[in-house]
Design a protein around this nucleic acid. Structure first.
Lengths: 167, 167
DNA sequence: AGCCGAAGTTCATTCATTGAACTAAAGTCG
DNA sequence: CGACTTTAGTTCAATGAATGAACTTCGGCT
């Protein structure tokens, strides 16, 4: 038990979360789902991870009720969608603490009003934290658009993209 | 390189973050640091992880500037402290989505006013997200106080404990 | 029917984790 | 002071997970 994917009997909600999303690659797979990527090959090409690992992670996430599979498409469930604040918080830490020389790699904006959200996801003009479906991502000054050529990277490089909108 | 601890060249801040805190055990070690645990053996006993792994993770975190070591004590740097929103967001997801039958395992309160913070860390009576040093943790109805007997578990089971306060 | 791409599976190699045993230094007690 | 204990690690063989390449399977297209 103590080996691999679980964390020994701890009375700890963080350990419970990490048993679901704490394995290598899992959070990056979920981030792709938030971007709207739905197909196996698109995720695989974007993240450049072994197919066997992606297959395993998708199965685990479906089993945990974080993703659901219909045909060949994987989409976030309500449970999965509620991970967004955590994913965003981790992403923002990387933006601040592992910053690119030229600035933010990615910028997020509330589509309803056009205002950029802050580092906790708060929209200052609407005074709310918008649901993730109302967010839009666009490349920032620190983005390196030449790094990846896959389909997902191309869509994101092309300009603003609404989260969850199928890619 | 793509093996092990890093994530292939991705222009992605989430990947940068996960290179620092994404390995197995790392976030649980940091959670202990937020609780105020500072010594090697206390962390080891609380998490029940192999000493070799703890040693490796502490070295990595110090090298990444997330922790600093003075003598035998490890404490969070400013960089480390700014991970709290992400750690709390992940913990809250576990509380909601992997809930104990009896309710919350842990409850958090703003010490300045005594109000419980919400799931994004907002104190409704002060209308702020307090800095982590002003948070207090206490066992909730879903806590299983019999699971662990180590020193850290005992301190937490005994009653409210202010975060970052040395255990 | 034959071809192509998407979505996997299988497998040998490489790497990480585990747990037990060992070491070294600092603190405790008689 | 000297023996004992605790703390803070290191070392190592065995086990489990990740990798990348090759292979399979299925649906759609011509």
């Amino acid at each position: 038990m103590a080996l691999g994917r679980t964390y020994a009997e701890q009375d700890c909600s963080l350990a419970r979360t990490l048993e679901v999303v704490g394995e290598r690659w899992t959070l990056l797979v979920l981030r792709d789902c938030f971007l709207g990527v739905r197909r196996f090959c698109d995720i695989q090409a974007h993240l450049d991870l072994p197919r066997a690992v992606l297959s395993d992670r998708l199965k685990s996430l479906v089993a945990a009720g974080v993703l659901e599979q219909s045909g060949k498409e994987y989409t976030l469930t309500a449970r999965g969608l509620s991970l967004w604040p955590a994913v965003y918080a981790l992403q923002q830490w990387g933006e601040r603490e592992c910053a690119a020389a030229e600035g933010r790699r990615k910028l997020f904006r509330h589509v309803a009003c056009g205002t950029d959200v802050d580092s906790v996801g708060f929209c200052s003009s609407c005074a709310v934290v918008p649901p993730v479906g109302e967010w839009e991502i666009r490349p920032g000054p620190g983005a390196d658009l030449s790094l990846r050529q896959d389909r997902v990277a191309q869509v994101l490089a092309a300009g603003p993209h609404r989260l969850l909108e199928p890619i």
